[in-house]
Computed example of a mutant assay.
Amino acid sequence: MTTAIVYILAAIAEIAGCFSFWAWLRLEKSPVWIAPGMVSLAAFAWLLTRVDSEAAGRAYAAYGAVYICASLSWLWAVEGTRPDRWDTLGAAVCLVGAGIILLGPRSVAV
Rank of each mutant, 00 (worst) to 15 (best):
P31R: 15
Y63F: 15
I15T: 07
R106I: 00
G90V: 06
A35E: 00
C94Y: 14
G57W: 04
C69Y: 08
L9Y: 11
L27E: 15
R26F: 15
T81N: 02
T3H: 13
E54S: 12
Y60C: 03
D52V: 15
W33N: 02
L48Q: 09
P31W: 13
A42W: 14
A42C: 10
L41V: 07
L103S: 13
G64I: 03
A92C: 10
S53G: 10
A35I: 07
L25D: 10
S30A: 14
G64F: 02
F44Q: 09
M1R: 07
K29W: 14
S73I: 13
A4H: 11
F44C: 11
M38E: 11
W86G: 09
G90L: 03
E14P: 08
R26I: 14
G99E: 05
E54G: 15
P83C: 00
L75C: 03
A61R: 11
A42M: 13
F44G: 06
V39C: 09
A61P: 08
S71E: 02
V32Q: 08
G64Y: 03
L102M: 08
L27A: 15
R82L: 07
A23S: 03
L47K: 08
Y63E: 04
V108D: 05
A10T: 13
A10W: 10
I101D: 04
G17R: 00
A70C: 08
L102Q: 13
V110W: 09
A4K: 13
V96S: 07
S71I: 04
C18W: 03
D84N: 15
W33H: 04
V78C: 06
G57R: 06
A16Q: 01
Y63M: 09
I34Q: 01
T3G: 12
G97E: 05
L75D: 01
I34K: 00
T49H: 09
P105R: 13
W22M: 00
Y63I: 03
A16Y: 04
W46N: 01
W86F: 15
W76I: 05
I12H: 02
L89A: 11
W24A: 06
C94F: 14
I34W: 00
A62F: 12
L95T: 02
G57P: 08
C18L: 06
C69A: 15
P31H: 12
G90S: 03
D84F: 04
R58A: 11
